[in-house]
Design a protein around this nucleic acid. Sequence first.
DNA 1: ATGATTTATTAAACCAGTTTAATTATTATT
DNA 2: AATAATAATTAAACTGGTTTAATAAATCAT
Lengths: 192, 192
Amino acid sequence: MEDLQRKIRSFTTVSDADMKFALQFYKKESVAKGSFLLKPDQYIDSFYFMKEGCVTYYTVDEGISQVMEFFTEGYFFTDLYAYIQEVPSHAYLEVMEDSTLYTISKKDVEKIFDYSHQLERFGRLSMQKAFINNFQRIHQIKNISNQERYLELLEKRPSLFQRVPQYLIASYLGLTPVGLSKIRKRLSKEAI
Amino acid sequence: MEDLQRKIRSFTTVSDADMKFALQFYKKESVAKGSFLLKPDQYIDSFYFMKEGCVTYYTVDEGISQVMEFFTEGYFFTDLYAYIQEVPSHAYLEVMEDSTLYTISKKDVEKIFDYSHQLERFGRLSMQKAFINNFQRIHQIKNISNQERYLELLEKRPSLFQRVPQYLIASYLGLTPVGLSKIRKRLSKEAI
DNA sequence: ATGATTTATTAAACCAGTTTAATTATTATT
DNA sequence: AATAATAATTAAACTGGTTTAATAAATCAT
């Protein structure tokens, strides 16, 4: 669990004793492509760390799916809204390729936050990070054109395009598959 | 500072001693309509609690303003992105009406988080709240039509329409003033 | 390898918004 | 109260996307 340890310490100082206490609660889990960690109307009690693999987080409203995020190596994730609020989820967490996760229950997360002030601080700072990510997402949606967002994703997370179908990327960008296809065509013409 | 105290305790249990420690750092401040708490390229070192009044949080990209939020009574606020990242802001915090705030510096916020585990927990939970608010914002943008968002705002925060000009509300909803005017016209026709 | 299924592209008609510009209504100032 | 300044509406032309449907390309299973 060295990658998980490194990730935790990227947020704040954590003593070896505190780290040992925290890590005891994480369980390694292998999940197969095509399976689901979560479906709508289920409660979610787990927090995940992605060691290796890819999970898509999306909702389905009136038959059309809305991709919120793709979780890949090094991401902490869950359906954070349903997890925090303890309400039935509206989302799917679908495993896109055979993946390895570290899993911890909410009860155990609360134990580690109770256990030490430093671990509570880690909790605060990781929540801060989640906020920043979301904030940047809103900024992108409000201030950046679809075409620019597509190009930025292509640059920042190129491997996604090998790992998930394009129609999910379209949804992530807030487009239909047709819309994304048009943008790609426009760009390929411009490039000539 | 009873309202501030009540607000803090709405997040988690805080002892009287811890509360006293925290409150000593907050300073009451009166700010006049038309003034700015923040302008682009400035750093922001303060966290605010809105006692009475209204502040608009917006960016200006290529001459067009993008309203992120309206902060009214009971809101904790700052330019959270610039505050956390300690980078020059891209935003304005403009005072829309004579307002009363409680202000605390980031240095002092960190003092109170260092001081007690309970206050650190308050920090974590308030960050969680900020995340949830942002998350719901994204959900709205992605899943709800402009018209529906307008109607929801009208229902949830009707007083805003008395307090800030309509073109700022349009921007908050992701529209131009013309676009919002059209929606309003459409709705008034339907109502007949 | 072949056929079946899924995914991506293309075309055409459409639409909810935009932009620009003119007009009207409201608010603030003297 | 009159005037100036600001804000909101309307109209007209436009646009970047949508929807629907057909076709082409890629992937999967036997």
